[in-house]
Computed example of a mutant assay.
Amino acid sequence: MISAINDFERENMLERQREGIAIAKAAGKYKGRKEVSIPDFDKPYQRYIIRELSMSQLAKEIGVSRPTLDKLIKEHQQVTI
């Protein structure tokens, strides 16, 4: 019984959160996470492909985290295919 009450309260809280985010977006206050784009990503990427740089070195060189670099590489590969 207590579990059902907790689930109900959790759903109410999440619904209020969604409503608050929708209101903030409508007011222009909630913009989400900023997009990361690296101009001329192809040159450092080619250095990574020929094993001149490791993935960690490439991430440090362009100033992003490893997960962000993984995302950029995945997007770059989709564009070039």
Rank of each mutant, 00 (worst) to 15 (best):
E35K: 13
S54E: 03
F41I: 09
A59K: 02
T68Y: 08
G32I: 04
L14A: 05
I38D: 07
I81L: 14
S56A: 12
K60S: 11
M55Y: 12
Q17W: 12
G28C: 03
Q57D: 11
I49A: 13
D42S: 10
S3G: 15
M13A: 14
E9H: 01
V36G: 08
A27I: 09
G32A: 02
E11F: 04
I5Y: 01
M55V: 08
V64D: 13
K31Y: 13
E61L: 00
D70G: 15
V36R: 09
Q46D: 14
S37I: 09
S54Y: 08
A59L: 01
L14T: 00
Q77A: 05
D70R: 13
Q78F: 01
A24E: 11
D42V: 10
P39M: 02
L72R: 10
Q46P: 00
I73Q: 02
K71E: 03
E11Q: 07
P67N: 04
R10M: 08
A27K: 15
Y45D: 06
M1S: 14
K71F: 01
E19C: 09
Y45A: 06
S54N: 03
F41R: 08
R51S: 10
D40Q: 04
Q77K: 15
D70M: 12
R33N: 06
A24F: 11
V64M: 07
I23N: 08
M13K: 15
K74L: 07
E15L: 14
Q17R: 15
L53E: 10
P67T: 01
E61H: 02
I49P: 01
D40W: 02
G63Q: 06
I73F: 02
E52W: 10
A4S: 14
D7Y: 07
